[in-house]
């Protein structure tokens, strides 16, 4: 059972640039991540789109572990702005 906040994507801010909906869950990002982060970005971004705020907040260490190195982004076939999306989540967490 999870609590869903439909307005969460707007609270994260910059909803127009948070282009996680383009993700097609192919898993390339997880496969190439030098930090071995399995959660980022596909699952985490889905939590944002679904409004599962608690899941995002309880994974803050993972969000800050990302190197922003763009290895995932350069391999992403859907053109998701992964690094900028992660930075957007950091801004949200810091404001909280």
């Amino acid at each position: 059972m999870v609590q869903v906040n439909p307005g969460f994507i707007d609270q994260v801010g910059q909803a127009k640039t948070f282009n996680a909906a383009a993700c097609m869950n192919c898993g390339v990002c997880s496969a190439v991540c030098p930090m071995g982060i399995e959660l980022l970005p596909r699952k985490l971004f889905r939590y944002v789109l679904l409004g599962v705020e608690d899941k995002v907040r309880e994974n803050s260490a993972t969000i800050y572990s990302c190197l922003l190195c763009k290895m995932c982004e350069v391999n992403c076939p859907a053109g998701v702005h992964i690094a900028e999306n992660v930075r957007t989540l950091r801004y949200y967490l810091y404001k909280k």
Partner: peptide, 17 residues
């Protein structure tokens, strides 16, 4: 273009990682 990160960006918060 496919270089592997040195890990440095994690230094300020996660030095061991």
């Amino acid at each position: 273009k496919f270089t592997l990160c040195c890990g440095g960006p994690a230094e300020s918060l996660f030095p061991k990682k």
